[in-house]
Write a protein that binds this DNA or RNA. Sequence first.
DNA 1: GGAACCAGCCGTCACATTTC
DNA 2: GAAATGTGACGGCTGGTTCC
Length: 230
Amino acid sequence: MVSVAGSGTGRGSPAVTLVQLPSGQTVHVRGVIQTPQPSVIQSPQIQTVQVATIAETDESAESEDVIDSHKRREILSRRPSYRKILNELSSDGPGVPKIEEEKSEEERTPPHIATMAVPTSIYQTSTGQYTATGDMPTYQIRAPTTALPQGVVMAASPGSLHSPQQLAEEATRKRELRLMKNREAAKECRRRKKEYVKCLESRVAVLEVQNKKLIEELETLKDICSPKTD
DNA sequence: GGAACCAGCCGTCACATTTC
DNA sequence: GAAATGTGACGGCTGGTTCC
């Protein structure tokens, strides 16, 4: 859940509100009430997929496992990349951090095992400004992203590959390279996904505060406008 | 102490999407 | 259209917690 510690109920200058995120993060929210904006949680073109409904039953034959797996993959509709989604969100307003195209400064550090603290993200929405000040995960970079894995040798020029053994070695090398790249891509993808989820959580917190304030404002206006009974 | 369970992370595969 | 890249799904591993 999200807990809110309001500090400033005045209607003049933007009030700063502390929002406690489910993850324990504390978010400072300022200037919450502004013009309406498109929904945040809407993920463009996302279709909810009920994977659970494809759960196997006991009587399912083994041969159906493969079919089920294939069907499931067919059913799963792909959403746009997290980078794309976040960048689209950020284009809604200046508040959402863009996912960097390139690795952060730390991730470009020299190739050796290093424990690093990822800098805390600062989130900001078009409704105001707020920061995420909670603890961020610490990542361990084990391998250089540019170096080839151990045992992988740069191939000779294609024209020099003649024997089946050389071809096999080339295929193996390509596979190793592909696996290494995919490994890094998966890491990056997971990092983006975490960032995306954090961003959504932050916006949820902001919108909840916004909603609460609007309700309060509505009640106030009702009190003002309602005819006095006495 | 160790078995059972859970959550989180990672590597890999398969396929979708993007880039050239 | 092929190559490169991104990501969902899956299974394995590991550390923490709980129960016996």
